[in-house]
Computed example of a mutant assay.
Amino acid sequence: MRIASRSSNNRRRGVAAMEFAVCLPVLVTLVFGSFQACDMLFLKHAVTTAAYEGTLAAAKSNATTESVCNAARQVLTAMNVHEATVSTLPLGVDVANVPPGEMLTVVVNAPVGPNLFGPVIFVPSTQAETRGVTIR
């Protein structure tokens, strides 16, 4: 009987090792994929909030392109977003010169690579972009 119980224990250990070998890559992929998904959601939220703050600054009567871009950059700096760009549309037109009733767009772009933890594996896009629109 002793030989049968040893064989049974060895089989159980073998099955456990096999289950571990099959499940470990799936669990690691889920963990790191969720990290990158959370980082991407945070980056998208930061870019959206920056565009929103830029449009709020653009809606003021004494707004300039510099004040709009600075308002958006303050949010990006506070949320630790690197290498982001802020611009206004129409390009080349100062916000102060946009006539009342015209549409103004604040565009915020941030590259995904420098703003995510670890290598970019699970994220399909390379840029996070948001546009905020306001009427002057």
Results as ranks from 00 to 15, higher is better:
G14D: 10
G14E: 07
V15N: 05
A17V: 07
F20L: 15
A21M: 13
A21Y: 12
V22Q: 07
V22F: 14
C23K: 02
L24H: 08
L24P: 07
L24D: 07
T29C: 14
L30H: 03
G33N: 10
S34Y: 02
A37Q: 09
A37T: 11
M40E: 15
M40Q: 14
L41P: 04
L41T: 11
F42K: 15
F42S: 11
L43Y: 07
L43A: 06
K44P: 00
K44R: 14
H45M: 12
H45Y: 12
H45P: 08
T48M: 11
A50V: 10
Y52I: 02
E53V: 00
T55M: 09
A58E: 08
A58I: 01
A59V: 03
A59I: 01
S61E: 11
S61C: 00
N62A: 15
A63E: 04
E66M: 06
E66N: 09
E66Q: 13
E66D: 12
C69Y: 01
N70T: 14
A71M: 04
A71E: 08
A71P: 09
R73H: 04
Q74N: 13
V75P: 12
L76G: 05
L76M: 06
A78S: 06
A78E: 11
N80L: 08
T88D: 01
T88Q: 02
L89H: 01
P90I: 01
L91T: 11
V95T: 13
P99L: 11
P99D: 01
G101E: 02
E102L: 05
E102F: 11
M103E: 14
L104D: 07
V106K: 06
V106L: 08
V108P: 15
N109P: 03
A110W: 11
V112P: 09
V112A: 05
V112R: 07
V112W: 05
G113Y: 04
N115Q: 05
F122P: 04
